[in-house]
């Protein structure tokens, strides 16, 4: 039989922790950020490395999903071409609120080295972005740090508020 040790001198003698709904909801949200698998180019390799055993995204609760309906964040990892722009918008619209976007790498931030007719000059021309990660490509540590910053951002938000749809304009 399991033996539970109860410290009667702490928390008024009850095995409970008191907190606010905001903190509890944000704790849940920020520690189960399921990411949409969105490797568009070489940054996708770094994103895969972040998810694999050496860097191990699972311990942050970040699990890659293949469906926008199951995802909370979209990590845009790579070059967004103009041909693909409408699809990224459609997938973003299919994600349920609340949702966040990390723009990973120079190409997703600004178009990067592809200053050409076929590349979208920054993914924020199409979808609203919460976090820009610099680098070409950013190392997995950078992506981890980015996810931790996003967690910090989520914790600072009010958990219960009217869900205003995020719009670019």
């Amino acid at each position: 039989m399991a033996q539970h040790q109860v410290n009667y001198m702490q928390d008024g003698g009850l095995p409970v922790a008191l907190t606010s709904i905001d903190k509890l909801a944000n704790w849940g949200r920020s520690n189960s950020l399921w990411a949409l698998t969105y490797g568009l180019a070489c940054c996708g390799i770094e994103m895969m490395a972040s998810g694999a055993s050496r860097y191990d995204f699972d311990r942050f609760g970040t699990i890659f999903r293949s469906s926008p309906r199951q995802a909370d964040i979209m990590i845009v990892a790579g070059t967004l071409t103009k041909k693909h722009a409408e699809f990224i918008r459609r997938l973003y619209d299919q994600m349920t609120e609340p949702k966040w976007v990390i723009s990973m790498g120079s190409c997703a931030n600004t178009g990067g080295m592809f200053n050409t007719y076929a590349t979208v000059q920054g993914v924020d021309r199409v979808i609203p972005v919460d976090l820009y990660l610099p680098g070409c490509a950013p190392r997995p540590e950078t992506l981890q740090y980015g996810v931790m910053l996003l967690q910090k951002k989520i914790r600072s938000e009010k958990a219960i508020k009217s869900q205003k749809p995020k719009r670019l304009m």
Binding site: N115, Y117, M169
Partner: peptide
């Protein structure tokens, strides 16, 4: 190289 007017506004025109 950086596209004509159509190319530069392509994604904006198409989506929004």
């Amino acid at each position: 190289l950086q596209g004509d007017e159509f190319a530069q506004w392509y994604e904006v025109d198409k989506i929004f």
